[in-house]
Every structure is written in C-alpha cells, then in structure tokens.
C-alpha cells in the first residue's frame, strides 16, 4: 500500500501544493514559536497579516483568488528572519517580495523567483544589518519530515537538492566542509532552492541549477563566519532562479539540435 499512498500523493501534489507546503513548514514554525512565544508572536503576526493582506488586495482587484499560497513565503520569512528585526521591517520586506515577485505576475506560480528567498534578500537589502539566520537545531530537525514530504510529493525537485549538496561539497572542498552544514544546507535547498516555481522544469536544467546554487552558497559565504552563511544561500538561490528559464531553454535547444543531428 505504500506505493499506492505515494502514487496518490504524487498525483494530487499539484492540486494540493499549497496545503502540502504549508504542512511541511508548520512543524518548524510551531517549534520556533514555542521556543520563545513572547518574542516570536509579533513576527508571526506580522508575516501572516502582511501576506494575507497583500494577497487579498490583489485577489479583490483581480476578482479571483486564491490567497493562501502567500502563507508559504510568510512562514519561510518567519523561520529565517533575524530575531532582532522588527515586525514592521519583516512585514515590509515580505510585502515587497510578494508584490514584486508574485502578485504583479498574476499570483503564486506565475513568477519565476522563490518568494521566500526574495523576501529574505529584500530584508537584507533594505535593512543591511538584518541578514537571514539559520534557525536553531530543534527547528531544523522539526523541518526534516516536511522536507521529506515535499520531496516525495515532487513539489521540491530532488535533482536540485542532490546537485546542490554536490555543488556545495565540490566548491567548499576541502577547507570549509563541515558536517554541521548538512542540515541547514538541506533546509535551504529544499525550501528555497527547490522552489517548484523558481527551479527549472527540465531534468538537466535542475541538475545545473542545483550545482549552481550549491556552488554559489560556498563561493559567496563570508569568510570566518561560523556555520552556514544564509545570506549566501539566499542570493545563490535568487541567482539560480534568474538563470532557470535560460537553463531550460538551453536544454530544450540542445535536445532539438541532437534530434536534428540524429535524423540528418
């Protein structure tokens, strides 16, 4: 029956994408909230309010929803935003990312960037000391089952994750390679790098994108910083997202050229 459940999960993944992605992010968000409820609730309130407000405004203007997809980048912002950021700063960066990266294109799925990564990048750009941070170990562990869920459902392309890890290992080898990077890197790759709407859709394109993301995470990391540099991760993901359509077009053109050569 396992195969049956998995097949059903994968067949329904496209229709239940928002629910599955929110279910994957809910446990780490809950752990983060429960670890320091007093400090966390203003951030959580800010991201949820900003996300739903932006989505509702655009849904009202366009006369169509849905709006809950905006909660996915909201939870990612909640997980990775630095604790010293004010709720207003977080809400501002998230709103800007949602509008510029998604809503002006028609909503989630019509843009070409990982909105979670874009919101963290805009937070770092807009308020320079506020770089995204890797959450505590308990939060990362709580994110693992959800990460596995989106990988199994196919909502996070596994090639991007695998190639991302390989790219990071190759670029960081041997000096900066530390087993402690594994889980934070996996979290970044699954939830930001392997965004279903930001990653390429062709197999070779996904391998290339993953290698690029992983390599750039290692290459852009600030020297001497303890742990994984999440700012590098966010900018690596955004850069790979920008190249994703080009990678897909290149893969298709190459396949066409090979087909023509084979038939000639």
């Amino acid at each position: 029956m396992r195969g049956g459940y998995l097949a059903t999960l994968r067949a329904r993944a496209a229709r239940d994408a928002t629910a599955l992605r929110l279910a994957a992010l809910a446990p780490p968000a809950a752990v983060l909230f429960l670890s320091a409820p007093g400090a966390a609730w203003p951030h959580l309130l800010a991201v949820v309010t900003a996300a739903l407000a932006c989505a509702l405004v655009f849904a009202e203007i366009r006369g169509r929803g849905p709006v809950f997809e905006a909660l996915v980048p909201a939870l990612l912002m909640f997980l990775f935003a630095p604790p010293e950021a004010s709720p207003g700063q977080i809400a501002f960066a998230l709103s800007l990312a949602l509008v510029l990266g998604s809503l002006i294109f028609g909503g989630a799925g019509f843009g070409f960037l990982s909105i979670g990564a874009l919101s963290l990048a805009l937070l770092a750009f807009s308020f320079p000391p506020l770089a995204p941070v890797v959450p505590v170990d308990a939060v990362i562990w709580a994110a693992l089952p959800g990460g596995l869920l989106v990988l199994l459902a196919g909502l996070a392309p596994w090639r991007v994750v695998l190639a991302g890890a390989a790219g990071f290992a190759l670029a960081a080898w041997p000096a900066a390679l530390d087993p402690g990077y594994a889980l934070p890197l996996a979290l970044v790759l699954v939830h930001l790098g392997a965004d279903p709407f930001g990653a390429p859709v062709t197999g070779p394109g996904q391998w290339l994108s993953g290698l690029m993301t992983g390599g750039l995470v290692a290459a852009l990391a600030a020297p001497g910083l303890p742990g994984l540099d999440l700012s590098a991760g966010v900018f690596a993901v955004l850069l790979a997202n920008l190249f994703a359509p080009l990678m897909d077009a290149g893969v298709i053109a190459l396949a066409d050229w090979r087909e023509e050569a084979r038939r000639a």
Binding site: R10, A13, A14, A17, G109, G154, L155, P196, F197, V201
Partner: peptide, 24 residues
Amino acid sequence: AALGPIVPVPALATSLPLGMRTIP
C-alpha cells in the same frame, strides 16, 4: 474560471509521452 498556475510536479511531467518536455 481564469486558469491557475502550472505546478511542475513529476506526475504532471510524466503525463505525456517519454521524451516530451511536458511542462514547457
């Protein structure tokens, strides 16, 4: 109703014959 986004999942990518670039 207006069309929603295409969520590029493997089940969709394999719904057309092998070798086809389904999502594009």
